[in-house]
């Protein structure tokens, strides 16, 4: 075998590695964003105060409910599975149908509305309206439509919007420490929507 053969072989492997590395990096970024959103969404719970009645009627857990298609990878779930909020372990439940039963409404403290429910968000928010449940989503304009927190990816960095009116309406109190980090938005009125 000549030296040129080995050089060609090395070049080939490099090319293969370069092509293989591109999808891996993209997947990595995806995983990181999901994980961040998952972590952020449960950490919001640390800066929110639920009414005592809502906390007491649960079973020493804090319900983290995902509505619609699960947006998080296993790695993201793994990062939050043992997390504690208000001294309670997170109880993660996924409602793929996008519907919440009465029991689910009782158990859920945090509801993450997946992108898959973008078209049903109005309905979901109508169901959850006035209930002491923290609503989070990464759907654009979620807070303007009555959701409480919207996660936004700007330049690979997760930011969030807060709708303080929605918090007040639901009887939840949000910490000023969270508010000072967020962009505050107001709900679109019905006339504005039209």
């Amino acid at each position: 075998m000549s030296e040129s053969f080995y050089l060609r072989l090395l070049f080939f492997f490099n090319i293969v590695l370069v092509f293989l590395s591109i999808p891996i990096s993209v997947a990595d970024i995806r995983i990181k964003e999901d994980t961040l959103k998952a972590v952020y969404s449960f950490k919001f719970g640390k800066f929110v105060q639920w009414p005592e009645s809502k906390l007491n009627n649960s079973k020493k857990t804090l319900g983290y409910c995902i509505l619609g298609k699960n947006p998080f990878t296993n790695a993201a779930f793994k990062s939050i599975e043992n997390a504690l909020v208000k001294g309670r372990k997170l109880k993660i439940q996924i409602y793929s149908s996008g519907l919440l039963s009465d029991d689910a409404l009782q158990d859920c403290h945090i509801v993450y509305v997946s992108q898959s429910e973008k078209n049903h968000q109005q309905h979901i928010l109508a169901v959850l309206r006035n209930r002491p449940i923290l609503t989070i989503s990464d759907i654009d304009g979620f807070s303007q439509k009555g959701g409480m927190i919207t996660l936004i990816n700007i330049n690979e960095r997760i930011h969030f919007e807060i709708n303080p009116v929605a918090f007040k309406r639901a009887g939840l109190k949000v910490s000023s420490k969270l508010i000072e980090l967020a962009r505050l938005v107001t709900e679109e009125t019905s006339e504005h929507k039209q």
């Binding site: 952020y40 950490k43 640390k46 800066f47 997760i158 969030f160 910490s175 420490k177 969270l178 000072e180 980090l181």
Partner: peptide
């Protein structure tokens, strides 16, 4: 430190 808990939590 207390005021910065949010910043630390959300990496701000």
């Amino acid at each position: 430190g207390s005021r910065s808990t949010g910043s630390l939590t959300f990496n701000d």
